[in-house]
């Protein structure tokens, strides 16, 4: 039986899961440099040991209200298709395993988040985990609108 490992994170009251294979590391919020003319959800860029990587505010990306940093705020550094970027989340909870059979396809009516960002919904007892499509977070849509 196939199972996958997930890193779970919080945004507002929802709990999300990201495939651990895409997570490069988890860091505290460093100084973020704003990038003018960048898409709205790109909060800016940070210095990750000499490499400059963009940071997406997942709240803005999912059209939630923005909040101030807390002690729990983190940036999850993801690597998708060899591209590295960070996503800012309210908190990172745990790493857990999920059996394939406990994953359901995304519901037609989204959970307050655009369906293209959702890969499925995981069930752990009573808990519902929204599984994120990491490769959509920085997708082409943005490329189309920002060029030209």
């Amino acid at each position: 039986m196939a199972e996958e490992q997930l890193v779970t994170l919080n945004l507002e009251k929802e709990e999300f899961g990201i495939d651990i294979m895409m997570v490069q590391e988890i860091i505290r919020i460093p100084a973020i440099t704003r990038v003018p003319k960048a898409p709205e959800y790109v909060e800016g860029v940070i210095n990750l040991r000499g490499n400059i990587i963009p940071v997406v505010d997942l709240r803005t990306r999912f059209r939630m209200d923005r909040t101030d940093d807390t002690d729990l705020s983190r940036i999850i550094v993801l690597q998708v298709d060899k591209k590295v970027f960070g996503v800012r989340v309210d908190a990172v909870n745990e790493v857990l395993r999920l059996n394939d059979e406990d994953i359901e396809p995304p519901p037609p009516v989204a959970l307050g988040v655009e369906t293209r960002f959702i890969r499925g919904v995981g069930k752990i007892g009573e808990r519902l985990l929204i599984l994120l499509n990491a490769d959509q977070i920085m997708d082409e849509e943005f490329n189309h609108e920002s060029f030209e």
């Binding site: 003018p36 003319k37 960048a38 591209k83």
Partner: peptide, 15 residues
């Protein structure tokens, strides 16, 4: 470079 996602922003040559 600002990386693939952010290069080609008008007015910004790099970082």
């Amino acid at each position: 470079s600002l990386g693939e996602h952010l290069n080609n922003l008008p007015g910004i040559a790099g970082a």
